[in-house]
């Protein structure tokens, strides 16, 4: 097997996933940190004080949620580090990062569907002030980028196309 050829080709291949991972990864990490901060504030200072920026970006004060965001961001960044050092398999992290962000967005959407039922159908008092916007959080809106990437680059992660080398062998 021509291992050198693989690397040369791979490096050219990883520019898009690297760029995507850098942007997506840093967004997840930053918003995750912001959410962590908001969550800490609520615990140490009191329930009503929110970081203004957090408010603007619809960041809830939810510590566990912040770990999830930071984790997804870390997966992306981890991939960037691997891809930058020439390991083609680093695209795995971009792929799994996208999958994870979608999985958690689906979880959040289900939970907020539950909240919607509470608010509009059961008219539960705890959810009196609930609007669809109350559950729109980074975990959901950041996943839109991932969804876009997932659809757009579906082919990129197909095993057949992941490594160009094997293509010609298969076609013979």
């Amino acid at each position: 097997m021509d291992i050198k050829g693989e690397n040369v080709e791979a490096q050219a291949d990883t520019r898009i996933p690297v760029a995507f991972s850098v942007v997506s990864g840093s967004l997840y990490v930053l918003l995750g940190l912001l959410q962590l901060l908001a969550g800490m504030n609520r615990i140490f200072i009191g329930p009503d004080i929110l970081v203004p920026l957090a408010d603007l970006l619809l960041v809830p004060a939810d510590i566990i949620g912040s770990f999830v965001l930071i984790l997804i961001g870390t997966v992306f960044i981890y991939g960037v580090i691997e891809m930058r050092s020439g390991i083609y398999e680093g695209v795995s992290y971009a792929y799994v990062g996208i999958l994870l962000s979608l999985i958690f967005a689906i979880i959040y959407l289900f939970v907020s569907t539950g909240n919607m039922l509470e608010a509009y159908i059961l008219r539960n008092e705890d959810f009196a002030e609930w609007t669809p916007l109350s559950d729109l959080k980074p975990g959901i809106y950041l996943a839109i980028f991932s969804l876009f990437a997932f659809i757009r680059w579906k082919d990129m992660f197909e095993p057949a196309k992941a490594k160009g080398i094997n293509n010609d062998q298969r076609n013979t």
Binding site: V75, V96, F104, K163
Partner: peptide
Amino acid sequence: NETLTKSDMVDRVLTNKYLGIPIFLA
């Protein structure tokens, strides 16, 4: 020929030395 399958890609991350356990917990 052995290629990098999607399954291998997923495994590489989900059983990663540092990320495996946090992802599992999440």
